[in-house]
Amino acid sequence: MRTDHVAVTGRRRALVKAPFTWRNRVFSPREAILPADDSTMVDYPYAWAGMFHRSVLEHGLAVFPSGLFTAEDRPWIWRLHLQAASFALVDAPHLLYRRGISTSLTQVRDRRQLDFTRAFGQVIDIVETDAEAARFVPKVVATVLAVGSRHLVRARSMSPELAPRACATA
C-alpha cells in the first residue's frame, strides 16, 4: 500500500500526490509503471511512503542494493513493481518529508551523487530480464534521460574536480 506525502520546507507544507490516478482499489503494480512519457509510480520510489505486506520481505523485494549512496531506491522500486502481486494507493497523507536540509544527500554536491548511473544500470538489468522488457524499456530510457538531465544541471554547482565526472556519467 502506497500513499501521498506532505513536503515540509521550513514552515511551508505542500501535499505531494503519488502519480497514480486510481485510489483505494487493488491493482497490478505493472500497470502503474507506464506510460513512458509521464510520471508514474516508479518515479515515486519512496519506501517510506508505504506499508508493505510481509510477503514483500519474504520474497526478497524489500532488499536495497548495497554500495549505492544515492538512487538506491530506483532498483528497489522497479523490482517491486515488476515482481509484487498487487498494490493499492490510499489517501492518507500523514507522512511528512522535510526538504531543504543542508546535510541531506539530495542537497550535497559530492561524489555520492554520481551513483545514480550505477543505480540505473541495475534498473536496466532488472527490466531487461523481465518477460515484458520491450513494454517497459521506453519508460526506463525516459527516466534515465530525465534524471541524467537533472544531474547535468546540478553539475554546475559541483566542485571543478567533480563536475566533469558528473557530466561524463550523465
Rank of each mutant, 00 (worst) to 15 (best):
M1G: 11
M1W: 13
R2D: 01
D4P: 00
H5D: 03
A7T: 01
V8Q: 14
V8C: 12
G10Y: 00
R11T: 09
R11P: 02
L15A: 02
L15V: 08
V16N: 12
V16M: 13
K17Y: 06
P19K: 01
P19G: 00
F20M: 07
F20N: 02
N24C: 03
V26Q: 13
F27L: 13
S28C: 12
P29S: 04
A36L: 07
D37Q: 14
D38E: 12
S39I: 10
T40C: 02
P45L: 05
Y46D: 06
G50H: 06
M51Q: 08
M51P: 04
F52T: 09
S55N: 10
L57W: 10
H59R: 15
H59M: 08
G60Y: 07
L61V: 02
V63N: 15
L68Q: 10
L68P: 09
F69Q: 13
T70P: 06
A71H: 11
D73M: 06
R74D: 03
P75Q: 05
P75E: 05
W76Y: 08
I77D: 05
W78A: 03
L80A: 01
F87M: 10
V90T: 10
D91F: 07
L96Y: 08
L96K: 15
G100V: 01
I101K: 15
S102F: 09
S104T: 04
L105S: 12
R109W: 05
R109M: 09
R109P: 07
D110Q: 11
D110H: 15
R111W: 06
R112Y: 05
Q113A: 15
D115G: 09
G121E: 12
G121T: 12
V123K: 15
I124T: 14
I126N: 11
I126M: 11
T129I: 08
D130K: 07
D130V: 10
A134F: 02
R135A: 03
R135T: 12
R135D: 00
T143Q: 14
V144E: 04
G148E: 01
H151F: 14
A155F: 03
R156D: 11
M158F: 11
S159P: 00
P160T: 10
E161P: 09
E161S: 13
E161A: 13
P164W: 12
P164K: 02
A166Y: 03
A166R: 00
T169M: 07
